[in-house]
Design a protein around this nucleic acid. Structure first.
Lengths: 303, 303
DNA sequence: GCCAACTTATCGCGAAATGCTATGAATTAA
DNA sequence: TTAATTCATAGCATTTCGCGATAAGTTGGC
């Protein structure tokens, strides 16, 4: 036989109450069950825990000692359960979000702020890494989830659509392209182009756009960071095709965004998480918050 | 439903082993039982503890956290059980023995020494108090047991006979009573008598002895402590009637003990413990040791 | 790309335990 | 002495538990 928690709880109740029948009422159980439980527990421990006549019940020395330890054990167990419950109820937790630098800079901060308002106990960490590393981080568990644009074919990765984002033209205020009308891809032929380096997903889409107009893509500048590209555009060194949400990074800078059509090229920004792993309560909550937030953020510019 | 220790043990085994089927072998249980236990535990906690495919089992964040606490809880419980086992096996414990000063001085030290040799883990405390307080101490639990001579009629007190002890005459070496033959009570008439005060049980027996010879009891000195009485005898101020075991206190002093007959007055030295209370393992052990020790100590002089 | 092997989940059944009611035994208080 | 209270025991119905069999799903090899 083996000790059970129920036995220990019965023991503590009897010890505290000083009576079997009294404790049985409190435990909502019949008194014989208590007698049995204590008997079994004593047999297991090899010591008598109570001195009991039909009239008085009091702890033996061994019982007193066991009461101390048992109470501590029960309390700790309850604390452990409570802790896990807190995780489940999102009162507490940890969340690591992997995102490319631009998203990490212009979308995440506000989304996280909203998230922390709703779940103050969950601490959020950002891993601002390259797109390739995002998938890898999520796969190996370094990040709980990631946002960005990814191939749909990734293995072991679950996708949750957040928002569609169209490519947009960014030009300086003095540029002839700056106006109120949408710009066509074909109009870009005569302007020096600032692009991202070839490992960027955006670069690929830009290439698609140029191909659709049968224009050759001859970048004047190739940079890794979107913010760098915007700075170059601001300096009048060229125009850039960037995601709509780069607008947020261009705010307060002398750069304007123009709709870019024929074709409209859009890509889906998704939240990813490992499909094998269970979706932690924190990730579930974050997924909802960022989806609502992303849709509020960009609908008028993105569509 | 409620969490059980079995569930926790199953959880820890699976967590450590990283596999249900592997853990099931180690726990000597079938794999479906494990699946069920973990499922129930997860339902109770409201969180998934493992990410499991049919091929891999690994802890979730919540699972990792719960593993920490659960392991600590189990370890502490096992420690508590172990502690109580030690009490039961007399590897550890506490024992308070109440005894009148003389017994505490001349019998207990050696008995306790022997006891501690056999049960090194049990700490022994002596409460050297008056005879009246001994019964009271045992009754209210301040002492686990007591030794001495007590009325058989004491309520709520269990008696275990240790040894019979006869009254003995103590005289200085120059006394005419000093010789090799037993002394009769009637011979005491002509000598100044050192007695204990009236609250002593020995004093009562001395009175009985004098009455049996129809001699008047006219103490020359009345003292509370046996050792004081022996000192007075040694100084040649009188003779004293004391228990045989007072011989041990008279060793190395110029006082001799003589058998005292017509009548031989003996009294039973008993060990007492509270009858309501359970006899703790330590008291059981001590009872045996002191009984054997007492019988070895005094048979030739006492009988 | 399909098959074989391995692992976990589910199902059904039999055995064990659990807990309750009724009853007994013992002690206290009136 | 009796009545009342309290813990222990017995018998019984119910629930739970754990096992075997089987299903479902994933991985790795061919």
């Amino acid at each position: 036989m083996k000790i059970t928690l129920k036995q220990i709880e019965c023991f503590l109740a009897v010890a505290e109450y000083g009576s079997f029948s009294g404790a049985s009422k409190r435990l909502n159980t019949a008194q014989p069950a208590l007698s049995q439980a204590i008997k079994d527990l004593e047999a297991e421990l090899g010591v008598r825990l109570f001195d009991r006549t039909t009239r008085r019940v009091e702890l033996t020395d061994a019982g007193r000692e066991f009461q101390q330890s048992a109470a501590k054990v029960i309390e700790e167990l309850e604390h452990a359960v409570e802790s896990v419950h807190e995780l489940a109820e999102r009162k507490r937790g940890r969340l690591t979000v992997a995102a490319p630098p631009l998203l990490a800079a212009v979308v995440l901060p506000q989304a996280i702020a909203e998230f922390r308002r709703r779940f103050p106990g969950i601490s959020v960490q950002i891993a601002d890494v390259g797109t390739e590393q995002i998938v890898e981080s999520v796969r190996n568990g370094k990040a709980d989830c990631g946002i960005g644009t990814f191939q749909p074919s990734e293995e072991g990765i679950e996708r949750v659509a957040l928002v569609r984002d169209s490519l947009m033209l960014f030009c300086d205020e003095a540029s002839p392209l700056n106006g109120s009308e949408p710009v066509c891809w074909s109009e870009l032929a005569d302007y020096p182009l600032v692009t991202l380096t070839r490992d960027s997903g955006i670069r690929l889409l830009v290439e698609v756009g140029f191909e659709s107009c049968e224009l050759p893509l001859k970048p004047a500048f190739e940079v890794a960071q979107v913010t760098t590209a915007i700075a170059l555009v601001e300096a009048g060194l060229g125009v850039a095709v960037l995601p709509t949400y780069a607008l947020a990074a261009a705010r307060y800078r002398k750069v304007n965004g123009r709709q870019l059509v024929e074709p409209v090229i859009s890509r889906e920004i998704v939240l990813i998480h490992a499909s094998g792993r269970s979706v932690s309560p924190a990730v579930q909550a974050f997924s909802q918050v960022i989806r609502r937030f992303a849709q509020q953020l960009t609908p008028q510019e993105a569509r």
